[in-house]
């Protein structure tokens, strides 16, 4: 019987600083067999261990279309993520997974996609964004709305610029609190809706961010004609096992780790605690 709880050694091959407390790590499994066989889908997550400290679920931010490595973006928030953020190139962590369901891909072909992300919430969505761009011809117009608290807290700065240059793609960035140098938009992410001229027709919205952002972003999408199944969110929840056993992420009859983390808004409104999830 496989022991799903045993993680595997992975080496940090590069670290990119996103903001003062957020970094993106590129990892490669030490075991060459595992490095070859590790396969994941857009929107899945892994359980990352720092032995002696603990384990935490982290979304995979790299696209499955780009093979040979795994990228994780994390912010030093809890004990484990803080410990990881102290690691450097050449250090190791332990990884198991991938776990969870994933963003639809085939189902989105031929449609417009509206990505809405806040802060580090861009990380899980980025996996799908890059997968879509690696198959650019299969999709309609791509809109990316991204909000951060301050200009300093914008993640994936270079990629946002790069995405903007891709054909039939619009990227809008906003910050809550601008500083003197900020020339872009100011306000919450929903304040970009008009500017981006969003349209619900043949369109799917993909959301990730802080609970309060998701709540308002989705609410306004519904007002603008999006129907619940066309709003897709990916959730974060405290969890210990990632495989539907520890119980922590259980909402109603669903486990965020195995039934999610990707849910349609139609599912979300049926959550027993939906008023508190966001």
């Amino acid at each position: 019987m496989k022991n799903e709880y045993i993680p595997h050694l992975a080496e940090i091959v590069s670290v990119r600083k996103e903001t003062h407390d957020t970094k993106t790590y590129r990892l490669v499994f030490r075991d060459s067999g595992l490095a070859g066989s590790f396969d994941y889908k857009q929107g899945q997550f892994v359980q990352v261990s720092v032995l002696g400290v603990g384990e935490a679920p982290i979304s995979i931010t790299s696209s499955p279309s780009r093979k040979g490595f795994l990228e994780l973006t994390l912010r030093a928030a809890g004990r484990v993520t803080s410990a990881i953020c102290r690691l450097h190139t050449g250090d190791s962590v332990y990884i198991r997974g991938p776990y969870g369901n994933f963003f639809p891909f085939k189902e989105l072909k031929g449609r417009d996609i509206l990505f809405i992300a806040g802060g580090i919430g861009l990380a899980p969505v980025r996996s799908l964004i890059n997968l879509v761009f690696d198959n650019r011809d299969a999709f309609g117009h791509i809109t990316i709305l991204y909000g951060a608290k301050t200009p300093q807290e914008i993640c994936f700065k270079n990629e946002l610029i790069k995405w903007e240059g891709i054909r039939d793609t619009s990227v809008f960035t906003t910050v809550d609190k601008p500083d003197g140098t900020w020339k872009g938009h100011t306000g919450v992410v929903t304040s970009l809706y008009d500017k981006a001229n969003i349209n619900s027709k043949n369109s799917t919205a993909v959301l990730c961010g802080p609970p309060v952002m998701i709540k308002f972003a989705a609410k306004e999408l519904l007002q603008r004609g999006f129907c619940r199944p066309d709003i897709i969110v990916t959730l974060e929840r405290y969890m210990k096992c990632g495989i539907g056993k520890c119980g922590h992420c259980n909402i109603g009859g669903l486990y965020v780790c195995t039934d999610g983390p990707v849910f349609t808004w139609d599912q979300v409104v049926r959550f027993p605690e939906n008023e508190h999830v966001f």
Partner: peptide
Amino acid sequence: YTREASGHNPRA
């Protein structure tokens, strides 16, 4: 049991 690292707690 449900409190997240951010402090947000869906079952507060």
